[in-house]
Design a protein around this nucleic acid. Structure first.
Lengths: 214, 214
DNA sequence: ACGCCTTTTTGCAGTGCCTGCAAAGTTGCG
DNA sequence: CGCAACTTTGCAGGCACTGCAAAAAGGCGT
């Protein structure tokens, strides 16, 4: 069923770099990918409640115990988020020029992150369906973004020379992720249209939401 | 320990209306409040993992099974969110004038909602501490807001005559809730300062985030 | 006060998530 | 090969959460 060679990036992530070094590392990535794909696939078919961790593990040919070496919860496996994917976004943000306005830096960093997410239409449709049909998965997704948001906020605050719970930093980090969500909820969009929507959202954020509406 | 007569509003809610009718209704509110307060108190002292549902139920003098008649999860009890509290916010939004710009309506509806949350400084400090010391509680809070966000989005989209996953509607609903969060994360603020922060956040949202930064 | 109906509480039994621990199996390297 | 580091696995167990049916309690008319 699952194709072990296909990309395995999670909903907040991108595909892992192909620069596998040792056998160990390659195997780990493969297993993580298998688990993610198995989880997504099964939940798409039978709903979140209808799939047990045991099933997912069996599908990926590992023991149930091993499942929890890769993902802390069943939902995390469906989303496919990994700690490294968050690190990467933070890294991207850090490499933006220091004098760039914070919102522009976020925009650039998240644009790069989003691109690979939009590349596979079928995968995108599956994720969308899973999120729509299992409301608690949306909760889990928002929960999963909490960690990213905190780190984005810290990075932005540092860049602006403010402290960590500065309201402007909260707004910047939070609204940037809202924009990402606004792109992901859109169904039936081509990759280009999704990108357009991304730019539109950040334009609106930059220019102000006050004039939206009739 | 717990004071049954004290306000019991959850983190997204306000105190329930005092217009209790029958004994039945009063008792339910009392029990819900007791459970919420017990959960918050115990988790503040011993951490989320250190407290079982059984303990919370015992503290509120109900059976463990009854706990789940009031809250779907342990985290929900700590947050104290109720379905009615979400209804109320939506109602508030619905009563805003139809020709008001959406962001202004959200601002007004959420301002009313926020006010009672800021009234009790001690409670606010406890909540803040619980959220800070238990990262997974932040995840739960974000997850809990997902339902509210969806409904806000639907209401805003309807008001604008767009469909439910219109990107502008997503932005409006999402960023408004980010503003609320920006107020709640601030520690050591007086109620007045918190309100100022609220207005500041919405001013920024309305005027644009593009110029934030150094 | 009494009985009747509705709502709420409770106990029970069960499923499944998730964890720590220690044994067994793999990989990397000299 | 042989040792060290790491990963997988099984096992035992705690706890969250659910459905079901019996018991308790509130609401209400007579």
């Amino acid at each position: 069923m699952s194709d072990a060679s296909a990309p395995t990036g999670g909903i907040l992530t991108e595909e892992q770099d192909a620069d596998a070094c040792g056998l160990r590392e390659r195997k780990k990535r493969r297993t993580r990918g298998l688990l993610h794909r198995a989880a997504l696939q099964l939940v798409a078919q039978e709903g979140l409640a209808g799939v047990t961790v045991e099933r997912i593990a069996a599908e990926a040919d590992v023991s149930p115990r091993t499942f929890f070496n890769y993902f802390p919860t069943k939902e995390a496996a469906v989303l496919g988020t990994t700690p490294e994917s968050v690190d990467r976004i933070i890294d991207r943000l850090a490499t933006r020029p220091a004098d760039e306005p914070p919102l522009a830096s976020l925009r650039a960093a998240l644009r790069e992150t989003l691109t690979p997410l939009l590349s596979d239409p079928e995968l995108r449709a599956t994720r969308r369906a899973v999120l729509q049909q299992n409301p608690s998965m949306t909760d889990a997704l928002l929960g999963a973004t909490a960690g990213l948001e905190r780190r984005l906020r810290a990075a932005v605050a540092a860049r602006m020379g403010r402290d960590a719970d500065d309201p402007d930093a909260v707004l910047l980090a939070g609204t940037a992720l809202v924009a990402v969500r606004a792109v992901l909820v859109g169904g039936g969009l081509s990759a280009d249209e999704a990108h357009e929507r991304f730019e539109h959202c950040f334009d609106v954020l930059a220019g102000g939401l006050g004039d939206l509406g009739r």
